[in-house]
Write a protein that binds this DNA or RNA. Structure first.
Length: 639
RNA sequence: GCCCUCGUAGCUCAGGGGUAGAGCACUCCAUUGGUAAUGGAGAGGUCGACAGUUCGAAUCUGUCCGAGGGCACCA
């Protein structure tokens, strides 16, 4: 007798072992048809796997809108993709194929590279397999049998996977049609249950087991959803994201460009640079208010300093080197060693601490060519960097002040969804365990005291100390790591920084490395995508355009522009011999927030017609009133 | 760095072994038009770079550079 308790508390009893399918059939034919899997005491099981003891169970159907169903569908889609590939190219080797966010992938090994046509062929075959309604059978195999089987059919990667499984691991295989695959499961009862709301998206290379020394496999990415409607919504979402890609908008809005003579380094155009400077000036104001001093240090520094700091040893392959007169210089990849040099000038007292030293530091790092990505990952960039030299007992308050400042800055850009990750001691590190204990708890206590939640990221700290990473989520749900706070007990000592304490003795300060925006290039890119190019007035590089409707209004248009500029607003005048329709269209497409139109009526009345981006109509306003309200609206947050 | 794809006019793209095409932008002419494209004419390219195959290469092959998508990397 097996008693199965349903989520509503009711109990169904069976004479012997019963499967989820039996249970669903017992409840009703509708459920029997809709059932995809069964949850048994919290674990997801195949629908046809016998349940032999009393358990709390729940039938899983498409209506369950948590990730469970999507994972099931996507995992099955991966298997069906593998089956399709095996049918099309019998000599292909299958490896792994998990469910991932928004879809699935499968890694294959095959001498011939896949072509886009192959992708279509695989997708077509997948639809056929779904229609075949192949049953999925679960089987438990002996390890040696499994290894022999997969070796026997030439699936060496599978055999390797099994060999590497822990000795006590139950080895399960699933068979659908003629295709048998090693898999933990669970799966849908048959291929038909997947439905047709899937699509193969792209081809990519991927290292076997994620190790760059290993063979490069061919990965096929796909997406799968409960319904065509969900699939189309997803495809639409991707299209929308592509429209606001900062590389696309950067070109369209004439903000910046890249060219091969300086790969990974941006050429900023007037409008882009205006935006960049707005961001920098905003940050400068915030730092000034928060008690930072700003400095500027050299970009080209002798290797001796980098040897002393440890960068020559740890970071050499990322550094651009230049040689003159038997001396070797490196373009700085980081600002910290230079900041210590400034700190070391003159004798420092405990009264000088905490000393918050900021620099919009221009850094260069040789990033692998494949890592470059628009403004988001570049080789030349500027950090809103600062180093706080302080005593150990000041770490807590400095951490709190920093977190508050960072959150306040992010909020000014509309980012309120900020995750904090705490990374503790890595395997390879400098400093004693005692120092690490102290640094970790100081940093952790400080975040807790400041009232912020964080997740642990074990072993990912910097070699000199633990760190906090700040990850923000943008308007379309993507995550970006921008801010960081790192507690450093190593560099100040290595580079000979010291201060005189209350006891008249020399002490070594602690150094907090910190950045809020991270890199100005990257943050600008994030802002372009966040706002889809439609910047709030204070950031918009071109805040207004004054358009003359007839040439008789040209002088007045120039007068209006001059007054607006005198009030501190940024903008141009458009006196072209074109119709107002064309001007409105072009400036709207250029995402200019404010279009001021003046014709004969305005010349006579002295008023202006103001049209805001995104609105259909316009307002007739007194020029002074219009200017006053635009000036108010374009004020930098926090001023 | 690795795998796949791509590189044609300022931009978006078509074409494809016999020395190049569209739309928009640009220049000129006409038009002074009230809120998302006025009409006409003209000019514009060493087809990413370098080799090779060929009577002939933008087209085929190779190498390199760059870009896009992934993987690896991101102290």
């Amino acid at each position: 007798m097996v008693a199965l308790t349903l989520p509503d508390g009711s109990v169904r009893e069976f004479d012997g072992a019963a499967s989820g399918a039996d249970l669903a059939a017992d409840i009703g034919p509708g459920l029997a048809k809709a059932a995809l899997a069964v949850r048994v005491d919290g674990n997801l099981w195949d629908l046809h796997r016998p349940i032999e003891t009393d358990a709390a169970v729940a039938i899983v159907t498409l209506k369950d809108d948590d990730e469970t169903v999507l994972n099931l569908l996507r995992h099955d889609a991966a298997h069906i993709l593998a089956e399709a590939a095996k049918e099309l190219w019998p000599d292909i080797q299958v490896t792994i194929g998990p469910s991932i966010e928004n879809g699935f992938y499968y890694d294959f090994s095959r001498a011939e590279p896949f072509t886009p046509d192959d992708l279509d062929a695989m997708e077509k075959r997948m639809h056929e397999i779904v229609n075949r309604d192949e049953k999925l059978e679960r089987d438990v195999w002996e390890r040696s049998k499994a290894i022999d089987y997969f070796k026997g059919i030439g699936e060496h990667y599978k055999a390797e996977l099994i060999s590497d499984l822990p000795g006590d691991e139950v080895i399960t295989v699933y068979t659908q049609g003629d295709f048998t695959d090693l898999c933990l499961g669970p799966h849908l009862p048959s291929t038909k249950k997947l439905g047709h709301a899937f699509k193969l998206m792209k081809l990519a290379g991927a290292y076997w087991r994620g190790k760059s020394d290993n063979e490069m496999l061919q990965r096929v990415y796909g997406t799968a959803w409960r319904s065509e409607k969900e699939l189309n919504a997803y495809l639409l979402r991707i299209e929308e994201a592509e429209k606001r890609d900062h590389r696309k908008l950067g070109k369209e809005m004439d903000l910046f460009h890249f060219q091969e003579e300086a790969a990974g380094m941006a050429f900023w155009h007037p409008k882009g640079w205006t935006l960049y400077r707005s961001l920098e000036n905003y940050m400068r104001l915030r730092l000034d208010t928060a008690g930072y001093v700003e400095i500027k240090t050299p970009q080209l520094v002798d290797r001796m300093l980098w040897e002393a700091s440890g960068h020559w040893e740890k970071y050499r392959e990322h550094m651009y080197i230049s040689e003159f007169e038997d001396r070797v210089y490196a373009l700085k990849p980081m600002n910290c060693p230079c900041h210590v040099q400034v700190f070391r000038q003159g004798l420092k007292s405990y009264r000088d601490l905490p000393l918050r030293m900021a620099e919009f530091g221009s850094c260069h790092r040789y990033e692998p060519s494949g890592a470059l990505h628009g403004l988001m990952r570049v080789r030349g960039f500027v950090q809103d960097d600062a180093h706080i030299f302080c005593r150990e007992d000041q770490i807590a308050s400095e951490t709190k002040d920093f977190c508050d400042l960072l959150m306040s800055v992010y909020k000014d850009f509309g980012f309120t969804d900020v995750a904090i990750k705490f990374s503790d001691r890595p395997e390879v590190r400098a400093g004693t365990d005692e120092v690490w204990d102290q640094a970790e708890s100081a940093l952790k206590d400080a975040v807790i005291a400041a009232g912020y939640e964080f997740e642990l990221n074990p072993g990912d700290g910097a070699f000199y100390g633990p760190k906090l990473d700040f990850v923000l989520t943008d308007a379309i749900g993507r995550e970006w790591q921008c801010g960081t706070l790192q507690a450093d007990f190593v560099l100040p000592e290595r580079l000979g920084a010291s201060y005189i304490g209350e006891d008249s003795q020399k002490h070594t300060p602690v150094m907090l490395h910190r950045a809020i925006l991270g890199s100005l290039e990257r943050f600008t890119g994030i802002l372009i995508e966040e706002y889809a190019g439609k910047f709030p007035l204070w950031l918009a590089p071109q805040q207004f355009v004054v358009c003359a409707i007839v040439s008789d209004a040209d002088d007045f248009a120039l007068e209006v522009q001059a007054k607006m500029k005198a009030a501190g607003l940024r903008g141009d005048v458009d006196l072209r011999n074109e119709k107002i329709n064309l001007k409105v269209r072009e400036h709207s497409l250029a995402k200019v927030p404010v279009i001021v139109a003046v014709g004969r009526q305005e010349v006579e009345s002295g008023k202006v017609a103001v049209r805001r981006l995104g609105e259909k109509g316009q307002q007739i306003l007194d020029l002074d009133d219009a200017i006053a309200s635009l000036v108010e609206e374009s004020r930098i947050p926090g001023t």
